[in-house]
Simulated scan of single mutants.
Amino acid sequence: MAATGDDAAAMDSISRAPAAQLAALNAAAASSSQAEAPEDVAEIPAVVPKKTSTNSDGGVETAEEAVEPAEPDINELCADMFEKMAIVLQGELTGTSEDYRLLENMNKLTSLKYMEMKDISINISRNLQDLNNKYASLQPYLDQINQIEEQVSSLEQAAYKLDAYSKKLEARFKKLEKR
């Protein structure tokens, strides 16, 4: 999970701590360790002030070598680590919380969509019942149409038979006339 918003900015500021802050931490650690344990004073190198001197060669300044700052107290390092871990964990928890909030919103939207689909299916069912009722009310008329079609078909057959019979009679009549 990646941290977002203020947590990301806090994490970036932690990872990019300026050198001035580190020097201030080192100086504070040196003063606190001197107050707590005077026997450790020999181990901590002192900050050497910058000496300036002018030569007779046109006033060129010279500087002394920089001395490494003292390591901060282990308690301060632990406290700093716990603060940073708290920020990281807070970012993780915030990310997880946002994931759950997103899932909750998705579930709500899905529920609304299913409710809409339910309403649509109820309307379709109602319309289908209406169509079935109308078809049932039209069924007697459809049956009458089928009966009329059957009667027309039988009349047509009778007309064909009558036509064939009339052609036979005409042929017989013509045959009798010729004689």
Rank of each mutant, 00 (worst) to 15 (best):
V48H: 02
L162E: 06
D80L: 15
D99Q: 13
V67T: 07
K167N: 11
A70L: 00
E68L: 06
D99P: 00
E68H: 02
Q34H: 06
E92L: 13
N133L: 08
D73P: 01
N132I: 04
Y100C: 08
T52D: 06
A79S: 06
V48F: 01
K118V: 03
E64D: 11
S125Q: 11
S137D: 15
E83I: 02
N146Y: 07
S121Y: 10
D80T: 12
S97I: 03
K113G: 05
G58K: 01
L93K: 06
S56H: 04
K51E: 12
P72C: 01
E65Q: 05
P72G: 05
L109V: 08
S153Q: 12
I120P: 00
Y141V: 05
E65A: 13
L138F: 08
E104A: 15
K168T: 07
P49E: 13
E150S: 14
S125F: 03
P49L: 03
Y160M: 11
A171F: 01
S125P: 01
N133A: 13
L128Y: 07
I145W: 04
K113M: 09
E76H: 04
I122R: 14
E61D: 09
I124Q: 11
L138P: 00
K174V: 04
Q34Y: 10
K175Y: 10
A171G: 03
E71R: 09
P140E: 01
I145S: 10
Y165N: 09
N55I: 05
Q90P: 01
K167I: 04
F173T: 05
P72W: 00
I44Y: 03
S53W: 05
P69F: 02
M115D: 14
C78I: 14
K50R: 09
K161C: 00
E150I: 04
V60L: 12
L176Y: 12
S137I: 03
N105M: 15
S33E: 10
Q157Y: 02
D143H: 05
A158G: 05
R172Q: 06
K51A: 12
N132W: 00
E150F: 04
P38A: 04
A158L: 10
A37G: 00
L102N: 14
E104T: 11
S53K: 08
Q144N: 12
A136M: 05
S33L: 15
I44G: 00
A42I: 08
E65V: 08
Q147T: 15
D99V: 09
Y165C: 03
Q144R: 10
Y100R: 10
S97L: 13
M106T: 12
N105G: 14
D40M: 07
R126A: 13
V67P: 00
E71M: 07
A159M: 11
A158N: 08
E104H: 12
L162G: 01
D57A: 12
L155N: 12
L102Q: 15
D163M: 03
L102P: 00
Y165F: 09
K174R: 06
K108M: 12
D163V: 02
L155C: 04
S53Y: 04
V47G: 07
I120A: 13
L109M: 11
R101S: 14
P72M: 11
E43Q: 07
E36K: 07
Q144P: 00
S137A: 15
